[in-house]
């Protein structure tokens, strides 16, 4: 994803290399924030905060870790903090989303709402389950990479991911039934 040479240059104080590096990772950082926080505005904030932290902490990155897991650890930590602070607001938006969706039952938009359903369902997951799912599906991380990013044991990662998928599957099934009835 990111070349080692670029990272080394950035670490040795090459500001231009560091900026280039940030540009290469900004979409990845934003995507994680977006799906964990389920809100564009908060995702922008969190991703910017993460990039600034990466900018200032680049010297503390050690090559024994993968760079991509290092940056995802930074962004997920920020998101989880933010998520905890924002909890009441998030749950209100959640209800609005579900409400809006149930009002609209036209066939042609059903496909578009499938993605919306999934996002609503992801939004129901506890924070760490959500982070595991996001890293698995939006960053294409392996179990080990997720474990490194979230600083969790491998078995915990698996159990979170499996439980999350089971819960999502149940929620989507409920949404589908709701949609048919609505």
């Amino acid at each position: 994803m990111v070349e080692t040479e670029l990272i080394r240059a950035a670490q040795s104080g090459d500001r231009e290399a560091l900026i280039t590096l940030l540009r290469e990772i900004e979409n990845h950082v934003y995507r994680t924030a977006y799906y964990i926080l389920n809100n564009e505005h908060d995702a922008m904030d969190a991703a910017q905060e993460a990039l600034i932290r990466i900018y200032t902490k680049i010297g503390s990155y050690e090559e024994k870790a993968q760079f991509k897991t290092w940056i995802q650890r930074i962004v997920t930590n920020i998101c989880i903090d933010k998520f905890r602070r924002n909890k009441p607001t998030v749950s209100i938006e959640e209800h609005e989303l579900i409400f809006a969706e149930k009002q609209n039952v036209e066939e042609e938009v059903l496909n578009a709402y499938a993605a919306q359903d999934i996002r609503s369902a992801i939004n129901q997951l506890p924070e760490h389950h959500r982070a595991v799912v996001v890293l698995r599906y939006l960053q294409d991380f392996s179990y080990n990479e997720i474990a490194d990013s979230l600083n969790l044991p491998l078995n915990t990662v698996k159990s979170y991911l499996f439980r999350a998928r089971q819960q999502l599957q149940t929620l989507l099934q409920e949404y589908q039934k709701g949609g048919v009835r609505g």
Binding site: A47, A115, R119, Y137, R165
Partner: peptide, 29 residues
């Protein structure tokens, strides 16, 4: 159902920020 879910999760839109975040944080940097 799980395979369907997994496929749907894999095809979630790869969202990108509306503007360059690096440009936005440049003054702070």
């Amino acid at each position: 159902r799980l395979k369907l879910l997994s496929a749907e999760l894999s095809s979630l839109p790869k969202v990108v920020p509306g503007y360059s975040l690096v440009d936005a944080i440049m003054p702070q940097l």
